[in-house]
Amino acid sequence: MGADVKIVEPCNLYECELGDEVFVGPFVEIQRGVKVGAKSRIQSHSFICSLVDIGENCFIGHGVMFVNDLFKEGKPAGGDSTKYKETKIGNCVSIGSNATILPVEICDDVVIGAGSVVTKNIVKSGIYAGNPAQLIREL
């Protein structure tokens, strides 16, 4: 854990890395191996599964869900972590409340609208929204 980290209980943190000045709200679960960059904020009721890397100065809204199991075989991986996929979130990314983030890469300077479902990599800065999330406008 970095310096000046604020964690509001209750929450579940399992062997994750939190950079300097990170804020974690109540009822958040962050699983093993997750990295959260400095000055990022994670709001209440969010779930960050293993294999997620969040950059610096990011905002994760209320109730955001990260997914690492794509049910490739038509069913859950059943705890077989070799079937899980990684998610990488760049710096200065804001993810609106109740968004769902599948295993993707999101570049720096992106805004994801509330309730959006990100199913593909985002390689261009901008505002994205919808299901599946699409570019609304460039930044």
Rank of each mutant, 00 (worst) to 15 (best):
C16I: 01
G19P: 02
G19Q: 05
G19K: 05
D20I: 11
F23C: 05
G25P: 05
G25K: 01
P26K: 15
P26V: 10
F27N: 09
E29F: 08
I30K: 02
Q31P: 01
Q31H: 13
Q31Y: 09
Q31E: 09
Q31L: 12
R32C: 07
G33R: 13
V34E: 01
V34L: 08
V36T: 04
G37H: 03
K39D: 02
K39Q: 12
S40R: 10
S40A: 07
R41F: 13
R41W: 10
S44Y: 07
S44V: 12
S46P: 06
S46G: 07
F47W: 15
V52W: 06
D53A: 15
D53I: 13
N57V: 11
F59A: 13
G61F: 08
M65Q: 13
F66D: 00
V67G: 04
N68P: 03
D69T: 06
L70E: 07
F71T: 09
K72F: 02
E73A: 11
G74A: 06
A77H: 04
A77Q: 02
G78I: 09
G79P: 03
G79D: 02
D80K: 14
D80M: 04
S81K: 14
T82M: 12
Y84K: 04
Y84G: 02
T87R: 11
K88C: 03
I89K: 02
G90L: 12
N91P: 08
N91I: 05
C92L: 13
C92A: 09
C92H: 15
V93A: 07
V93L: 09
S97M: 12
N98S: 10
T100V: 15
P103S: 12
I106W: 06
C107A: 10
